[in-house]
Simulated scan of single mutants.
Amino acid sequence: MFKLSSILNRGLSVEDAIEGIGTGTVTVIDVRDHAEVRSTGKATGALHIPLARLQDMANPSHPDFHDGLRTERSIAVYCASGGRSMAGKQILRKLGYRDVHNIGGLGHWVKAGGKVEPV
């Protein structure tokens, strides 16, 4: 059986992200908009940084930098289905983050056994 990450060639599986968020080695970012997150909740422990704000909030020199981001951790990005998280991955890579992975959508998180918390 293939892991979803192998099929999508992402490197870090959703299962790895779930384990890593629990051990503090992975930062998970939800790039969906506020209405989506309010409607469905977000992955337990994930940071919510909407894609439209990611360029600023992931830039350490910007006043709106989110201090929850750590360059020494792997970063796993998700959205509703994987499209916006791919754009988020590209933004983070351009900002100098090296270990960044698109783990798809919130549904992939849930299917892999990840918990969801209300917002």
Rank of each mutant, 00 (worst) to 15 (best):
Y78V: 04
H48D: 04
M1R: 12
T44I: 01
I18L: 07
G114V: 04
L92E: 11
A35Q: 09
L106R: 10
G88C: 02
I7W: 07
E72M: 00
D64V: 01
V37S: 14
R84M: 08
L95M: 14
R84C: 05
R84V: 07
T25S: 14
G113M: 05
G68R: 10
E117D: 02
G88V: 03
R32F: 10
G22P: 09
Q90C: 03
L8W: 13
G105Q: 06
F65Q: 12
Y78G: 05
T25Y: 06
M86C: 00
H66I: 10
G113D: 09
L54E: 11
V110Q: 01
W109E: 00
G22C: 05
V116E: 06
L47D: 00
G104R: 01
A58P: 12
V100W: 12
L69R: 13
R10F: 07
A52D: 02
L106H: 10
L8M: 15
V77Y: 10
D67S: 14
G114C: 02
H34V: 08
G11A: 11
P118H: 08
D99G: 00
I75G: 08
G83Q: 07
G113F: 05
S85I: 06
N9P: 00
T71H: 09
E72Y: 01
L8P: 03
G113E: 08
I21Q: 08
R70M: 11
H34I: 02
V100N: 11
R73Y: 04
G24M: 09
E72A: 04
G88K: 03
V31T: 06
R38P: 03
V14P: 06
E15M: 05
A43G: 14
Q90N: 14
G11S: 13
I49S: 03
G11W: 13
A76D: 10
G107E: 12
V77R: 05
I21P: 02
K111A: 08
A43F: 08
N9F: 06
V100G: 10
F65N: 11
E36S: 15
G45W: 05
L69I: 15
G104K: 03
A76E: 09
L4Q: 11
F2W: 02
G114R: 01
G104Q: 02
F65T: 11
S39Q: 15
A43L: 05
E15W: 06
D33M: 01
A46G: 02
T44L: 10
V119T: 13
L51W: 04
